[in-house]
Design a protein around this nucleic acid. Structure first.
Lengths: 230, 230, 230, 230
DNA sequence: ATCTAATCGAGACGGTACGTCCTGTCTTGCA
DNA sequence: TGCAAGACAGGACGTACCGTCTCGATTAGAT
């Protein structure tokens, strides 16, 4: 939705009904047909709008779909305080997983990410519209944990890289399991993943079966797992 | 490459030269033009082959690109023994990151994954051709670490879920950072990620800035992995 | 040129330049390449027009060629008064023969007629666009001859069958000699044919060799038609 | 059916069953699909034969169809003596019309004639295989009429042009009425056409209605129709 | 009784055109 | 000026045939 552009104010104003109808139509088409099956003409027809009206707002497929998808995600960005870092992470994992369970989010996200691998402008748009936005969840959770005393306060170093690392790890795992491995994410998986993230691999060497969580280790103080190490 | 399979023995056999030429051409076209720019006619022309000859083997773009990309990954599956679990993980992370640095792998992988979000057959094809194959790396590294005594032996529980979790975590983080966040993976990131994975977030207070490695972590006293560091 | 017809008035109107360019290109292509060599894509290219633009107007090759050929014939429909029935017939025979001498008319006509042998819609289209139109020549010549007193006036019977018979005989002989027998039509043939048609076989003892005109037939004492002969 | 060619006698002989099956299949396909719809592969499939087997006998579609059609006509060439020139002509007209009533003859003939308008080799093949063969009918009828005294004997001049003219007139009228005008040929039309051909237009100026034949005029001795002439 | 060479079926091959679909731009007339 | 409608140039799609080619398996006649 770019070129309604600058100061000008004359002529017939754009229909906001059309805006909504087009985004809704795009979302619906994306679910049914996928990125490559989605056509601008079809979106216009679904929205009951002329093709011109679509192109007047979005210059091409990418732009339209990015807006359609991000609008979808914007409604979902919340991180309720569940009382502990561990619970917060489990919560966000399940929340994100639930979001990716919706076919429109799933298809749309992957489609624009794929397209972005060869389109720098699209990539940076995704970065700003999606990644940076979601990163606030990590920052917020981190700050909250620091206030609770679960994590030490910032020691003066820039926390960005740390935040990025954790964001990529959490989001990556969820996305990969859902979209690449193609397995669903349930409470048990969320629990085990949180355990791994907080305590580390060396702290729970495969003793956990599915749905059979290991006892919460505090800072991984499990002597047996340290046995073979210097 | 499906329909030649039925046991028939009659007629002129398919040219294996054509097989190779087409896959090579598809790979090259993928790098230059990306998924959406790749056209079957162009691939045929590059391969010096008629369009018919391509369609006789692969029914559509997805099928062709999946085969082209998996063949690409098959050449890359190695996990040299670097002497410790920590080093092995850092190694595989960097190895996988390097692979995703190649535009052909990057574009091709994401494209077929995106396409797979709405194509069950393609999804299971990806699972078998790529995911399951790569999972062996995790299993191999795990077994090696158990022999070294870094990890306890299997305690009778089925190790699958554990392997899956670790695989999704490693592959997911690498893929997400590379393709979604759009940041490169260097030695420092690989090191910090490995530290997080092995020791856990609670043991890892995020004091490291970029290019400014964290102090040797309390428990990661592995000489080989510290070799290049202060 | 069918589907624009419904009374609609909206949208961008079709380019009449394109109409003309396409028909001209089709005519030219027909001459150079013949029916089977003519391709829609090539016609579009010659007309400097997209293939879509051709298909929007004509659904297939037959339709396009029919229109191209009939437009060609429409320019040619004249029957100058040569002073006598005999001269008028000789004139129209030579005129029609000259028309069939043009490769575009020759190829186009036969092609659509052949196609029409298995396409009822096309057949009736040809009937209306070509046959009925040309029949007026016979009617006009007949009326003229009646005014001159060469033929008796209509005796109350419907003249249709008579007109049809004469039309099929004249047109059939010209077409057959030109396209089936593959021999050219010159002044001598036109003269002998007219003699046969007017006087009948029994009055016409076949003494004429080629270029060796028969002696003035007993009953065909028409000065104008004998002008160029011994 | 050309290249079984010269002296050689060794190897497996060609199957005559295949010859017949192919021609029959070609005939059937021609009726159903027309020239342009007929494909060599389809003919082979209908004949239960490999494409190679067809191409080994006929180099292309034209050759095959010409042979298929001429074989069809060869069975039909007879001119029974009906006792008078008039009856013989009426007989051959109706006979030829009946032949063109068969869709396979109709479609096949027109198709190859149309193709011949731009293929000299095909044209001369048609001339020899069809036209020249049928011309014998005219020659035979003429000779017979001369023996009966209905026509004068040859006066030394070469009779070819006369034969050609009559052949083109008869065949042309029948073909044109059937295929171009698209009207059927019944006994009444055959009678009226014969009358025109034998007596001439000036002898029966439209006094005949359909199915209401004029009395047989002998040498067109109708004074009233000659009124306006010198 | 073998040898041998042309036949047969099957179907892959390089090409060419097909007719459809979509893209992004443009040209109308109405509001 | 916005908008619905739809024409426009361009280009890829996946299909269908063409006429050629390579296979392995017959099949007769010549040896």
């Amino acid at each position: 939705m770019r070129p309604p552009t600058p100061g000008k104010r004359t002529g017939r104003p754009r229909s906001t009904d059309a805006d909504r109808a087009i985004l809704d139509a795009a979302r619906a088409a994306l679910v049914e047909l996928g990125w490559s099956g989605l056509s601008m003409g079809d979106v216009a027809a679904r929205a009951g709008v002329a093709k011109t009206t679509v192109y007047r707002r979005w210059a091409n497929k990418s732009d339209l779909v990015v807006d359609a998808v991000t609008a979808l995600l914007d409604d979902q960005l919340e991180l309720p305080d569940l009382g502990s870092l561990r619970a917060d992470i489990e919560g966000v994992v399940q929340h994100f997983a639930a979001l990716l369970g919706h076919p429109e989010a799933k298809t749309g996200l992957m489609a624009i990410i794929a397209e972005a691998t060869r389109d720098d402008a699209l990539r940076s748009r995704i970065r700003h519209a999606i990644v940076d936005r979601q990163k606030r969840l990590v920052i917020e959770g981190r700050t909250r944990a620091q206030h609770r005393g679960e994590l030490p306060p910032d020691n003066g170093a820039h926390p960005g890289p740390q935040v990025d690392l954790i964001f990529d790890t959490i989001a990556g795992a969820v996305v990969h399991r859902t979209l690449v491995s193609g397995e669903p994410i349930d409470a048990a998986w969320a629990h085990r993943f949180t355990e791994l993230l907080l305590d580390g691999l060396l702290a729970f060497p495969g003793t956990a079966g599915p749905g059979m969580p290991s006892p919460p280790s505090v800072r991984g103080a499990d002597p047996s797992s340290n046995a073979g190490r210097a």
